[in-house]
Amino acid sequence: MTSIENAVPENNITDIAMAEQGTSLWKDAWTRLKKNRMALFGLAVLVLFIIIALLTPWIAPYGYEEQNLDLGATPPSLQHWLGTDIFGRDLLTLIMYGGRISLAVGFVATAVALLIGVTYGAIAGYVGGRTDAFMMRMVDILYALPFMIFIILLMVVFGRNLLLLFLAIGMVEWLTMARIMRGQVQALRQQEFVEAAISLGLGPLAIIRRHLVPNALGPIIVYTTLTIPGVMLLEAFLSFLGLGIQPPQTSWGLLISYGAETMEEFPWLLIFPGLALALTLFSLNFLGDGLRDALDVRSSKD
């Protein structure tokens, strides 16, 4: 091997080093992600949806409260591209406004879950022993609490608002995240590179941040992309029970559940919100897969 190694001409060496200065795991990951078409497609769709959601109040063709009871439910037409619902409201407008809520709930609640879960799980797994046992028993107790009662209690005490909804869902979803993270960290903790980091003099937080979390990202990312759609559906369920979003405000989950009731007469009321949700989920999955591969430095040679 030595002969090949030393065959690299000297003048190139500094060039390479300079050109790649500041390359980090994330930068490398981005370079790799750019080569994955499906992931880029997913990312593009998500960015597009988010931009639309942000601009909705200005670009929506109608207001979401504009009813036209005489019109009623009509199939897609030139005036209403995606048709209208039973109150004569424009479906495209409803989907755009619903997307604002659904995407916000999906991303914010998942971010809350991710932050709490990864931190909590990493600490429990790294410290181990009694601390770990105590922390994980807490998780078990929270698991055992009936989720609905927990959320209803929160709503009763603090009243109904959107922020609380984010928080409540995030508070429940982090439990699984913490368990996954703890398992990963426990396995990684036994590896010699962690011992090497300790003997270098690194503190526990630096070891968790620099050595453990990056190596546990694969399963975490996959689980995150599964959590976001789960959260969106959970929001729909809560709204359906009257605990989440209330009409005339709407979300994709609500639109779908109303659409499902009238599926036989007015199928477009189910199909279009369903398509919006499905497209988001597909994009998330493609992006998640791509991210996992991109962050795994072993997955590609280039």
């Binding site: 980090s24 590896q191 010699e192 590179f193 003997s199 003099g201 050595h211 990056p214 190596n215 430095v297």
Partner: peptide
């Protein structure tokens, strides 16, 4: 920490003792 600087370890298995997500530089 100061003491750790003065003594180091080389491990048996170079496949396990290097963080797979860190480049040589890191």
């Amino acid at each position: 920490k100061k003491m750790r600087r003065r003594m180091q370890m080389i491990f048996q298995d170079p496949y396990a003792s290097l963080n797979p997500r860190m480049s040589v530089y890191d």
